[in-house]
Design a protein around this nucleic acid. Structure first.
Lengths: 204, 204
DNA sequence: GGAAAATTTGGACACTCGTTCAAATCGTTC
DNA sequence: GAACGATTTGAACGAGTGTCCAAATTTTCC
């Protein structure tokens, strides 16, 4: 935390942080195209049609920018299944809708998911935004866990795995499907949908 | 394939390709320390105590170097469970030894696995060594599949999932355990061992 | 309207990157 | 030992990086 956060408090928090969020969102799409390491701040600036120096006015540096960007995107993402958890009437309906939704996000936001895994991996080498990544990981784990627990409730029994294991399994099949999808395998969408349903009904 | 491979044929294949393998192996440990994007060829050269230009004498460039390096490492890795598959007498023994072995490689070669996931992710952005990564992915999938099939044989029934799904699940729990381990969670070794056994006995 | 603050710009800085290449060295063969 | 090809070096090139900053512009407030 340096000059940037100080500036955020001096001016009204509103304008500054709103602008921060806008820039971070725009930056995210730029970085998602070619990856974290392959995208310079000049690419980001060009993509947002704003100047390079401005990025350092609103952010403490590249890590701060990307950390903020992935956080505000993923923390939104992690609420994607809330409506399904809240409104599903049976375990079968929950599983079915969950499968459809997870396949939909793979199809519609493949680039963003690719970037997420890129950043998570980078955080295993750099300490730049490691804390943010860890926080997101916990968010996602809790998201999966909420689905698993609700499904078990509707089915009238206890989950057969813990939260960490459930997240590992769903994350595994999702990443695998993402890779296949990015390599041109369209069928991976449907395979992910079915695999998710199988995993949920089988282990929850 | 450019000047380098041409040179390989002119001189006896032996000396040149042997040197290539040595350099690639040394380069791998250098890149594993800080990641593909954060490690320059100068770092590699310094790590191997050889000159920078030499790397371009034996390799067509960074991608060629790293592609060769990860290939010769991982194609060896993919045979790690062969003895277990061949000599286990019961399904329970196979599962138990598999769990021990997968936890052991996580503990002993965490840096290399971290690098593997780094390179696989990079290949989703660059085309540099994408084909090599895909080939390794198939190798690993076949490795997992061999374990699953053998376990099913010993237990006297058919595998309940296909090869791609099995790989996705095992890769998922392994990556999850690796991340936890790298973040300082020692217990993830034991959790991975148990989760692997559960996955194998439950879905094969 | 004018002063003060916030915002925005464009360029400069110091550095690292992958790549290239002429020259030097080594090893082999006649 | 001379000649030739294989090997190795170290320096250089051009492009790229993140960061920083003085100046210009816009906005805000008295």
């Amino acid at each position: 935390m340096g000059d940037v956060s100080a500036r955020a408090e001096r001016s009204g928090v509103d304008k500054f942080s709103v602008r921060r969020r806008e820039l971070a969102a725009a930056a995210l799409t730029a970085v998602a195209e070619r990856g974290f390491a392959n995208t310079g701040l000049r690419d980001v600036a060009a993509h947002t049609e704003l100047s390079l120096g401005l990025l350092h006015y609103y952010f403490d540096g590249k890590d701060d920018l990307i950390g903020q960007a992935i956080w505000q995107y993923k923390s939104e993402c992690a609420r994607r299944y809330d409506p399904i958890v809240e409104t599903s009437k049976t375990g079968a309906e929950l599983a079915e809708r969950f499968g459809v939704e997870i396949a939909a996000t793979l199809r519609d936001e493949a680039d963003m998911h690719r970037l997420w895994y890129d950043l998570r991996n980078q955080s295993l080498f750099d300490t730049g935004f490691r804390d943010t990544i860890i926080a997101i990981d916990e968010l996602l784990r809790d998201m999966v866990w909420a689905v698993v627990v609700r499904h078990a409730e509707l089915e009238g029994h206890e989950p057969s795995v813990d939260a960490a294991s459930a997240y590992a399994l769903f994350d595994g099949i999702f990443l695998n499907a993402l890779i296949a999808y990015l390599r041109g395998d369209i069928d991976s969408l449907e395979r992910l949908r079915k695999a998710s349903i199988r995993l949920l009904t089988g282990s929850a």
